[in-house]
Design a protein around this nucleic acid. Structure first.
Length: 286
DNA sequence: AATGAATTCAACCGCCAAATC
DNA sequence: CGATTTGGCGGTTGAATTCAT
């Protein structure tokens, strides 16, 4: 194809926001013919868009099961948890959140999470920030999940966040064993991951502005149990980790991911970040 | 009410790997 | 088997919206 011919075709291509008419064309075509072969689809449907643009519009916006709106605390928790393991692998993270797109998760991370990092004056990619997330933000999200679920479960005091493999995350109430949240994403199991690997994080209710402290540390590399007791009441956080070769990572990765309150020797002090002055929680679940 | 700053998020871009020719 | 096309991913942009003054 000559350059002038390419330029001509480029000029014909439309860019920018999609119109209702274009959306309808795309939806109608996919309903009749299915997804795939996006370039061909774009032409056949009479859309002056690239195949890529059609694919993106469909996956991120038009697909019927696409969720819109604010991420729930459960979803945020899953994102934080998985991001600490997977990094910016947005599509992999998105597979754990049915109806959510990689684009949406990426936007959440950039606008909400990195905003907190700026607020704390910490580099969002630094270990220090990851530690801060695990110590302060994630417990509070868990607390929020707890609060939400307790509205439907009377006498609720404890829930469990379980990461069994790369594929599964669930939050269950231990007494009723009611599942508060489950993520069973990738339909195809990963071939070389140990099935019996599991860990769980249990959080009692309300940690509020109080900073949990490690009061006990049990275990070795194969089974660690942490019990965080609050300074001001009997509430506690428990982290129960079983199995270490989860997700193909070494034990250090798992420990750094799941311990909300580990080694305090990297410059993060409890008083620095334990208050909502620093963690603007209102922004996290608007 | 006006306006500038900040934030959000849909869409685009470039790169890469897999599939197809 | 090399060239081309396609699909998917992560990073970036900028228009629209919201917020603050």
């Amino acid at each position: 194809m000559t350059n002038s011919c390419k330029q001509e075709m480029d000029q014909e291509l439309k860019r920018g926001a999609w119109t209702l008419e274009e959306d309808n064309l795309l939806i109608h075509y996919i309903n009749c013919h299915g997804e795939g072969r996006w370039n061909l689809l774009a032409k056949s449907a009479g859309l002056k868009r690239t195949g890529k643009s059609c694919r993106l519009r469909w996956l991120n916006y038009l697909k019927p099961d696409t969720k819109r709106g604010n991420l729930t605390p459960q979803e945020q928790l899953v994102i934080l948890q998985l991001h600490s393991k997977l990094g910016n692998r947005w599509s992999k993270i998105a597979r754990h959140l049915p109806g959510r797109t990689d684009n949406e998760i990426k936007n959440y991370w950039r606008t909400r999470v990195q905003k907190q990092a700026r607020h704390l004056k910490i580099d969002a990619s630094s270990k220090r920030f990851v530690d801060a997330l695990q110590r302060f933000w994630m417990p509070r999200l868990l607390e929020k999940v707890e609060q939400d679920s307790s509205s439907s479960i009377s006498n609720s005091t404890t829930s469990t966040l379980t990461m069994e493999t790369d594929q599964n995350i669930s939050i269950t109430h231990p007494k009723t064993e009611q599942t508060v949240f489950t993520s069973l994403s990738s339909p195809q199991p990963s071939h070389n991951e140990p099935i019996n690997s599991s860990s769980s994080i249990c959080a009692s209710n309300s940690c509020g502005n109080m900073l949990p402290e490690i009061s006990q540390l049990y275990g070795d590399n194969t089974h660690a149990f942490y019990n965080y007791s609050s300074l001001q009441n009997i509430d506690s956080y428990n982290v129960d980790i079983n199995g270490l070769d989860m997700m193909g990572f070494g034990s250090n990765d798992i420990m750094s991911t799941l311990n909300f309150q580990m080694a305090d020797n990297d410059g993060i002090r409890s008083g620095d970040m334990a208050t909502d002055t620093y963690w603007n929680m209102d922004e996290l679940w608007p």
